[in-house]
Design a binder for these strands. Structure first.
Length: 1036
RNA sequence: GCUCAAGUGGCGGAAUUGGUAGACGCGCCGGAUUCAAAAUCCGGUUCUUUCGAGAGUGUGGGUUCGAUUCCCACCUUGAGUACCA
């Protein structure tokens, strides 16, 4: 019987679907285990072999956990809202829902054929109204909440309102905007409803505010900080500018400390935790208030400038202050003499884009305002400058400059000739600032003299508090997250506006479904695409969406405009892991209490590291919020997280010989448009250099060159015409051309499909490829032996390079083809076999034959009957030497595979399987006692072949219900050891000795061995190290 | 600049508490089978070598009887982040 993988895989995939083999139940005596993949965005391109890597790993783990007796939840779904579908809709007019549906079908087909054990009955799609109903509901809960620092949790906004109406807001310790006016209880109660609503927006966890946002004109939308890479949009690479807009924001900053602390409780990689820590950016220090010294011209109003510093210990080193050019006091404190210079500087900075400012960090610029502040302790006047090295968006937008302790302040002071007082004991600051906090004592600082950083900081803060001019403070880099997108294909906000004030739609009327629009572009007035919807207003009487025109026509009748923005991509993905838990009551709740209680959080989460500061941070934020409000029991979403590495493509190159005419006065360099191309192997690349340097060619190179010249002569007419046209003054004869031109080599990507395992190019296949049209039809290929290839006279070997897998590099490998040619089990094994899960590694289809032939050998092991028929010996194994060997092989495999899976070291288990099958084949093992448990070990990796052989062994149930074999140490006990005998640490030979031999006996036996004597060559050993059971090392 | 990760044959990689470096697979070389090819099977394959042996895990030091593994300095590559006060 042949190993017919196509038939076997189809059979078992159908079986699993029909029997709902992997359906998880919400109550079970077994312990639960939740294995989750980051759900994919269903793109139009479908999957390439890099995508399933993480899914295969998590699937192996899920199947293993089932064998180990766990009730496993292993679901899958789609993050189906997103930009690409919308961009496609703009281009083609097709509704994103339609293309998304098509893409999902492709994804599902591709996923199914790889044999994943997903419970598809729990599938989620973020773009389904039945799903986003609950995304909208969570948004409303955020709106109805505020963050209380005293209790360190989110609470219902009514609680805050109650405090306002009895005590006012003076003493509340809660997260809020910076520009809060203090009011008393009676004032609050007297405010109109609108004013109250306006004030409450400053406290809500999601709020509407005019914020400076990252506006991407090309995409027509706002982007979050994590959606911008190097100043351009992550998707598409379009420029991004700063712009003020009224937007929904999420008060994630309220959770900064808990998001930071929570990292210590979860099992994530250090790299990932580190990048979240950096993103949150906690700095401990102090806020210090400086009084601005009033000048004659200034009005009565006195100013105080507050700054944040991490070095309050250096307060005596302050010799100037710097404000960001955007700082609100700049215009107020500037003296008339300096006004012109300051205005010019502020104007100039405003014109520079964020990118310019970022790119140009070397140039030092700034202007003196003419104003002075008073040092809190010395009472000396300190000049106030403005400079664009101070960012308006961080801290207070102002710094106390300590040039001796901060390099930027130092550079600024040097540049503008400002005093640089030294406050460090015995430190030379003539060349640069001393930025370190360690190993230094403070000097010239009155009461701080002689103290180290820690002590001095504490004392300085204490003294500032006494003066009422400062306090200890913690600052975070983490900013509130902008939550509005000016796009169509996202969740609509469940919000309508009454007199400009946002109102929430009740849960019972959700979901608020996306309206139809005739085009997916912004309106002519610059409103988001939803502004085009004809039916997009909220009727508060009927509680339904009605015609937009009704807002005007029936004014005062309770019909109001709906929000035109939609939510960002991370809205739906911030809570989807809870949705999978619910299987029955999805209409009534986002997830029922029982389901949430049973499944808790994700035990193992696998996905890419690119989500470090986006999805993975926002999810943690939402979960903590939902926890605070009692909607879920857990306060972290993902207990353990693994980032799978990327699979890279191995690109193939052919090398085209191009004409480069010798430098002429017209600067003519290349011309290859009309000349049939000539390709040479990379090994001849020196040919061009040699020709250029007038060096002699070697034999093969000469043949290539002669062939090439032959070709050129054939093109005589064409070439001379071209040459003459571009070099009107020159003699256009072929002779001249040959004397003046230099060939250069140009690498060109070719499709990896036309390259075999030995890097040989399938030239006829390439020539017939329609995608390249006529490009290669007339191409001349010169082979490894310098021959023009014509049939089989020579071969062309491509060059190889590892790059990211991408369509433009022609190195994309489609799993469909792999599955068709080698089967899903081979694909699964090979993806794991490539290397450690977390690592970046290149894909090379050639290597798959290794794991494929392993599967064939495995199949053969169970088909040792006549003509390859199924044969298994069911009789007891007995105690023969052969049986011992069989058991030893089996049990060392059990041990290794179990350890490997627990450590997520899947690549090494594949090797272990190969070794086991090689050994059992050599042992001619046919015993059911060995071969049956072996299948369970292999089944998580190669489930189809395992199921098939399991069935042939006579089992009625799916192998996924089998228990994992138990490791028995006794089968691995040995009586002797093949000792490595080293001399000065180098192993020279091995010696088989019994394990119960004493140290002394080992030493004696080894020293008397003739090989030892030869090695020592008469020298007496100085020392002999014997580690019983391990090694013998002779020194001398 | 800072933070993190990683450097081992022609290639992917293995060596889990310091104890036989290169497991397993690809590729390559040789052989068997075949009219031939594919497929399959067997053997070899780190480098140098005077065939005795010697060197060798990015580089240079150190600890140790013994270092891919631990320590110090440096180099290279990749990722993240960047005037964060």
């Amino acid at each position: 019987m042949r190993y017919d993988f196509n038939q076997i895989e189809k059979k078992w995939q159908d079986y699993w679907a029909k029997n709902k083999t992997f359906k998880a139940v919400n109550n079970s005596d077994k312990p639960k285990y939740y294995v989750l993949d980051m759900f994919p965005y269903p793109s139009g391109a479908g999957l390439h072999v890099g995508h399933p890597l993480g899914y295969i790993a998590s699937d192996i783990y899920a199947r293993y956990k089932r064998h180990k007796g766990f009730n496993v939840l292993h679901p899958q779904g789609y993050d189906s809202f997103g930009l690409p579908a919308e961009q496609y809709a703009i281009q083609t007019g097709q509704h994103p829902a339609v293309t998304t549906e098509e893409n999902i079908k492709t994804y599902r087909r591709q996923l199914d054929q790889i044999g994943f054990s997903f419970d598809w009955s729990r599938e989620v799609r973020t773009s389904n109204p039945e799903y986003y109903k609950w995304t909208q509901w969570i948004f409303i809960q955020l709106f109805e909440s505020y963050y209380c620092y005293t209790d360190d949790k989110a609470k219902p906004i009514e609680d805050l309102v109650a405090v306002f109406s009895t005590e006012g807001n003076a003493n509340v310790n809660v997260a809020c905007d910076d520009d809060i006016d203090v009011f008393k209880a009676d004032q609050w109660n007297a405010f109109s409803s609108e004013i109250q609503q306006k004030i409450l927006l400053k406290y809500r966890l999601t709020y509407l505010a005019e914020t400076e946002v990252n506006w991407c004109p090309a995409l027509g939308t706002v982007l979050a900080n994590d959606e911008i890479v190097n100043g351009v949009s992550e998707r598409g690479g379009h420029p991004v500018v700063r712009k003020k807009m009224t937007q929904w924001s999420m008060r994630i900053s309220a959770y900064a400390e808990r998001l930071l602390q929570g990292l210590d409780t979860i099992d994530w990689t250090d790299a990932l935790k580190e990048s979240q820590r950096n993103w949150i950016g906690k700095s401990v220090g102090a806020s210090v208030t400086f009084n601005v010294i009033p000048t004659e011209q200034s009005d009565e109003e006195s100013h105080t400038i507050s700054v944040f510093t991490t070095r309050p210990d250096t307060i005596y080193g302050v010799s100037f202050m710097t404000l960001a050019p955007e700082h609100e006091y700049v215009s107020q404190i500037t003296t008339p003499e300096q006004k012109e210079a300051v205005d010019a500087y502020v104007d100039a900075t405003a014109k520079r884009s964020e990118r310019d400012r970022m790119a140009d960090v070397k140039t030092i610029s700034g202007v003196f305002t003419g104003a002075y502040a008073e040092h809190p302790f010395t009472k000396e006047p300190i000049p106030i400058w403005i400079g664009d090295y101070v960012l308006a968006s961080y801290g207070t937008g102002a710094v106390m400059a300590v040039p001796c302790g901060d390099q930027r302040d130092y550079d600024f002071a040097k540049h503008f000739n400002i005093d640089i007082p030294n406050i460090f004991e015995g430190v030379d600051i003539s060349d640069e600032a001393y930025g370190s906090k360690d190993n230094v004592k403070i000097a010239n600082s009155d009461f701080l003299n002689g103290m180290n950083y820690k002590k001095a900081s504490k004392r300085a803060i204490y003294e500032l508090e006494q003066l009422g001019q400062g306090e200890g403070k913690i600052n975070y880099r983490l900013r509130d997250a902008v939550f509005s997108r000016q796009r169509y294909w996202g969740e609509p906000f469940p919000v309508y506006y009454v007199n400009g004030m946002p109102q929430m739609i009740d849960l019972e009327h959700l979901p608020l479904q996306l309206p139809e629009v005739e085009k997916y572009l912004p309106t002519e007035e610059g409103e988001p695409p939803l502004g085009r919807a004809d039916v997009w207003a909220w009727d508060t009487n009927k509680n339904e969406v009605v015609s937009s025109s009704a807002v005007e026509t029936s004014k005062g009748n309770g019909i109001y405009p709906l929000e035109l923005n939609t939510m960002p991509g991370w809205a739906g993905s911030s809570w989807y892991f809870f949705r999978y838990m619910e299987d029955a009551m999805r209409d009534e709740t986002f997830a029922s209490e029982d389901a949430l209680k049973y499944w808790e959080n994700v035990d193992l989460y696998i996905g890419g590291s690119e989500h470090a500061t986006g999805h993975l941070l926002y999810s943690r934020f939402w979960v903590k919020f939902m926890h605070d409000r009692g909607f879920v029991g857990v306060d972290e979403p993902f207990k353990k997280l693994i980032n799978q590495g990327m699979i890279l493509g191995t690109s193939a190159f052919v090398y085209r010989l191009n004409f480069q005419f010798g430098s002429d006065k017209k600067g003519l360099k290349y011309n290859w448009e009309s000349v049939p191309s000539v390709y040479i192997p990379l090994k001849f690349q020196n040919l061009c250099v040699k020709l250029n340097d007038k060096k002699n060619l070697n034999g093969d190179e000469q043949i290539v060159y002669d062939n090439y010249i032959e070709k050129l002569k054939g093109l005589n007419k064409q070439l001379t015409d071209i040459y003459h046209e571009k070099n009107k003054d020159c003699d256009p004869s072929i002779k001249v051309i040959l004397n003046t031109h230099i060939p250069v080599i140009f690498p060109i990507h070719v499709k990896v499909d036309y390259v075999n395992s030995s890097d040989e190019l399938n030239i006829s296949g390439l020539k017939l490829d329609k995608e390249f049209g006529e490009d290669y039809i007339d191409a001349i290929f010169i082979g490894e032996n310098g021959q023009i290839i014509n049939g089989n006279n020579d071969i062309y070997k491509v060059g190889r390079e590892v790059e990211k897998m991408s369509k433009s590099k022609y190195n994309v490998v489609n799993p469909d083809n792999i599955v068709a040619d080698y089967g899903a089990d081979s694909l699964r094994l090979y993806e794991m076999f490539l290397g450690p899960l977390e690592q970046y590694k290149p894909w090379n289809t050639a290597g798959i034959t290794g794991v494929h032939s392993f599967l064939k050998k495995l199949w053969k092991l169970y088909h040792q009957g006549e003509n390859g028929s199924f044969y298994i010996d069911s009789s007891p194994l007995g105690k023969s030497d052969g049986a011992k060997d069989n058991l030893k092989t089996l049990h060392k495999t059990i041990k290794k595979v179990e350890e490997d899976i627990e450590n997520f070291s899947f690549n090494t288990s594949v090797s272990t399987f190969m070794i086991a099958v090689n050994e059992l084949t050599a042992q001619k093992c046919t015993s059911k006692e060995i071969l049956q448990p072996l299948l369970v070990l292999i089944s998580p990796y190669a489930p189809h072949i395992a199921e098939e052989l399991w069935e042939q062994l006579g089992n009625a149930d799916s192998i996924s219900t089998a228990t994992f074999p138990k490791f028995d140490e006794s089968h691995l006990v040995e009586s002797s050891k093949n000792y490595p005998i080293s001399f000065n640490g180098k192993m020279r030979f091995t010696l088989e000795l019994p394990l119960d031999m004493s140290k002394e006996e080992i030493e004696k036996t080894v020293l008397s061995n003739e090989k030892t004597i030869t090695q020592l060559q008469g020298r007496a050993p100085k020392k002999v190290i014997v580690v019983p059971g391990k090694i013998v090392n002779i020194v001398g």
